[in-house]
Computed example of a mutant assay.
Amino acid sequence: MHMLHTNAVPTPLERAWISEHILVQPLKDLAVLDGGIETVRRTFDELKRKRQKLATDIDAHLALLSPVRRLPGDVLREIFVSSLPSTHNAIIADREAPLLLCHVCAGWRSIALTTPRLWSSLHVVVPNQSHLQNVVSLVKQWLVRSGVLPLSLSIAISVAVVDNPEEEVAADSRLLDLLV
């Protein structure tokens, strides 16, 4: 049609011709193609779901074959000890050994919790009053896990403006008494 891609306005007769003759088959073809695309999309989504399930199953089985699963406990203990920070005492943080090792799997957690050398160094940051009880509890657990090994301790006490200095000193002393 000569008016395509122009700003021309079709007459009422031309509009009727376009609607009744020119667009009828292309609209049907477009609907068929849209249906085909939707069918392919559903098929694709289903294939992706099946692939993800299969890949997950394969990964789980490959994990069973991992060489680290065959390492004896004493070798894992040495590797764990080697993973401790070398530039500072261990901190109470999930992102760093030894706590990080406890989050890998139940087997590693068991080995880590029964390896006193992992717990024989500790850097304690004396927190504000609201977090002190949690820190005291974690430090107690840490010290129990270290067994009878000599400890390497470092302590950071932040100097902060407090409303009641006597309460703050008493709270800090609970932690310091535990460490002493």
Rank of each mutant, 00 (worst) to 15 (best):
A93S: 15
I157V: 06
E14R: 00
A112D: 12
V144P: 01
S146T: 01
L23N: 13
H123Q: 03
P116D: 08
L64N: 07
R42W: 05
D45T: 05
L47G: 10
F80C: 03
H131W: 06
G36I: 00
L27Y: 04
L33R: 01
S120G: 09
L175A: 06
E78H: 03
T56K: 13
T11V: 06
E46K: 14
L138Q: 14
G35Q: 06
S121C: 04
S120M: 08
I22R: 15
A156T: 14
L76T: 04
L13S: 12
P116E: 08
P116H: 04
Q133F: 02
V169C: 08
G73E: 09
V40G: 04
C102I: 01
D45G: 04
R69F: 04
H5T: 09
T6W: 02
N7W: 07
A16E: 12
A93N: 15
W119S: 02
D177G: 03
V124P: 00
N164C: 13
V124N: 01
L76S: 03
F44P: 07
A55K: 13
S173W: 12
H103P: 04
L54C: 15
A63D: 10
H123T: 02
K28R: 12
V81M: 10
A93M: 13
A63S: 11
V68D: 07
H103M: 10
A106K: 02
V32P: 00
V136P: 02
R51F: 10
K53M: 01
C102W: 00
V169W: 03
D74L: 03
C102S: 01
E38I: 03
I58W: 04
I111D: 00
R174G: 09
A93K: 14
D59C: 10
V126E: 05
A97T: 05
G73F: 04
H123Y: 05
E96Q: 10
D34L: 11
R49C: 12
S130K: 14
R51K: 15
E78C: 05
E167M: 06
A93G: 14
H103D: 07
D163N: 10
V180N: 14
H103N: 10
S66L: 02
A90Y: 02
S137K: 15
P127Q: 08
K53W: 01
N164T: 12
K48L: 15
S154N: 01
Q141I: 00
N164Q: 14
E20V: 11
R95G: 05
V104M: 03
L27R: 04
A93L: 13
N7S: 07
M3L: 09
M3A: 08
V144E: 03
V24S: 11
L64Q: 09
V124R: 02
T43R: 13
S110I: 09
A90H: 01
S121N: 03
S82G: 06
L76R: 07
H21D: 13
V161Y: 08
N7H: 05
V126Q: 09
A156Y: 11
L23Y: 12
L113F: 14
